[in-house]
Simulated assay, not measured.
Amino acid sequence: MIVNNVQLVLENEVVSGSLLMRDGEIAAIDQGRSQLPGALDGEGAFLLPGLIELHTDNLDKFFTPRPGVDWPSHSAMSSHDALMIANGITTVLDAVAVGDVRDGGHRLDNLNKMIGAIQQSNRQGVNRAEHRLHLRCELPNERTLALFEALMTTPELALVSLMDHSPGQRQYVSLEKYREYFQGKYQMNDRQMDEWETEQIALAARWSQPNRQAIAAHCRARTIPLASHDDATAAHVDESREIGVTIAEFPTTLAAATRSRATGMQVLMGAPNIVRGGSHSGNMAAAALAEQGLLDILSSDYYPASLLDAVFRLANDTRNACTLPQAAAMVSRNPARALGLNDRGLLAPGLRADLVLAHTDHGHAHVRHVWTQGRMVW
């Protein structure tokens, strides 16, 4: 297949031209229009590498679309996969919570069910995106280590993150924001919330550090990429680096982001943070990190459509010097390299033909077509 008359978003520039796919790979890139009959006319839209998502909670929503609703696995996985592809995401790490902050919550109940759905749909070949697994390990929980050890040999496992959502630190330095989030999510009154806070602080004091050290040791032994989560201080970052972390997920302060980059970690922030103009938790704005050249990877987190949207917002933001190729690298080349996926992430001959054709004709990014390994899937 030839995709003709497109703006090719290459590693360091954007050029007009055409792209040839053959046997699932990019065979050639040419400047200028192809004259061959049957070529797909891209109508001047942007052709980008397929987006690579390292941390999305989206799968969870399809398994429990409403409180108390347990949705069939095949339908949930199929709908999730379709939404990923519709937003240009061709490689996705489905984030599954291990040791959820609310024991007995639907994430914990659905743990094996969701992982089983990823595995079964992969084996059956029904997914259009490539799905892998990201284990989000909630450290202040006595069950976290045992659950992780039961899952750490899962073939699909591609990333592990270490998180501590206990009150008064990291993401929730602001107790007001902490109470607002958890009271809204779990409908707790003030007395219940007081008891909840006390319990979470005690659990963190008992379990966070032992779990952090043990899980990190397992990841180092198995060469599983490891991410920190919500580091807020230079001390947090140094601790993360010491145990083998290579990706700094959602640092909450400029100091933490600066220190992460200085120690060699790639800084990952949420694309919704870019789209909304700031953090919903009142923490570091991703655009501010981009302005200082401290942003490496974007994740759609809880809103898949934000990923492509954020790329064009960053490229059009006059407050930073981020070009479209640099912004596109945050959702393609950089996450691919962070995982050691050297067969994708760029428009270059010999790499996988995972592609997104997107236009901005009406001032917003819209996906027109998506290919995975040379096959049009959208």
Rank of each mutant, 00 (worst) to 15 (best):
M265T: 09
G270K: 01
N316K: 15
A287D: 12
D296I: 08
T263I: 13
A288Y: 05
T318Q: 14
R313G: 01
L295R: 08
N334R: 14
M330P: 00
G293M: 13
R276E: 00
Q266F: 11
V275N: 04
M330W: 03
V331E: 01
A329Y: 04
S279W: 05
G278I: 05
L324Q: 01
L339T: 09
L294Y: 14
N334W: 07
A290G: 06
L294P: 11
A287R: 15
E291A: 15
A338G: 03
Q292H: 14
C322G: 03
I274P: 08
S306H: 05
N316G: 15
M330K: 07
I297L: 12
A315Y: 08
D296G: 08
A286N: 11
Y303T: 13
P335V: 03
S279V: 00
G277W: 08
D309K: 12
C322S: 05
G282M: 02
L314Q: 03
G282F: 00
L295D: 10
A257Y: 13
R337N: 12
R333S: 12
P335F: 02
L324E: 00
G278T: 06
A262L: 06
R313P: 02
A310S: 15
M330S: 04
Y302G: 06
D317W: 08
L307G: 01
H280Q: 14
P272A: 12
I274Y: 10
V267K: 14
P325L: 06
F312L: 07
S299L: 06
P335I: 01
R319W: 04
A288I: 08
V311E: 01
L268S: 15
R276C: 00
L339G: 03
S306Y: 07
L339Q: 04
P335Q: 03
V267E: 12
T318I: 09
G270F: 06
N316P: 04
L308I: 14
A338I: 02
A329P: 04
D296S: 13
R319K: 12
Y303W: 14
A328L: 04
V275Y: 06
G270Q: 06
S279Q: 09
V331A: 15
R313I: 14
V311M: 06
P335Y: 01
S260M: 13
L307W: 00
A338Y: 05
V275E: 03
I274T: 06
Q292W: 04
A285L: 12
G264H: 04
L339A: 07
A338L: 10
M330G: 02
L289D: 11
E291N: 13
M284Y: 11
S279M: 06
G282D: 07
A287K: 14
L308A: 12
A321M: 06
V275M: 10
A315E: 07
L324Y: 02
R319D: 11
T318D: 14
S306L: 06
T323C: 02
I274S: 05
T318W: 08
A310C: 03
D309S: 15
Y303S: 09
M284N: 08
N283Y: 11
G277M: 11
L294I: 10
S279T: 04
G293A: 13
Q266M: 15
L339K: 02
V267M: 12
A327F: 02
L268E: 09
S281L: 10
L314V: 03
L324I: 07
D301S: 07
L324N: 00
S306I: 01
S300I: 09
I274C: 06
A305I: 08
M284C: 11
V267R: 13
S306C: 10
A286L: 10
A305R: 13
T318F: 09
Q266P: 08
Q292L: 15
V267T: 12
N283P: 10
A285Y: 05
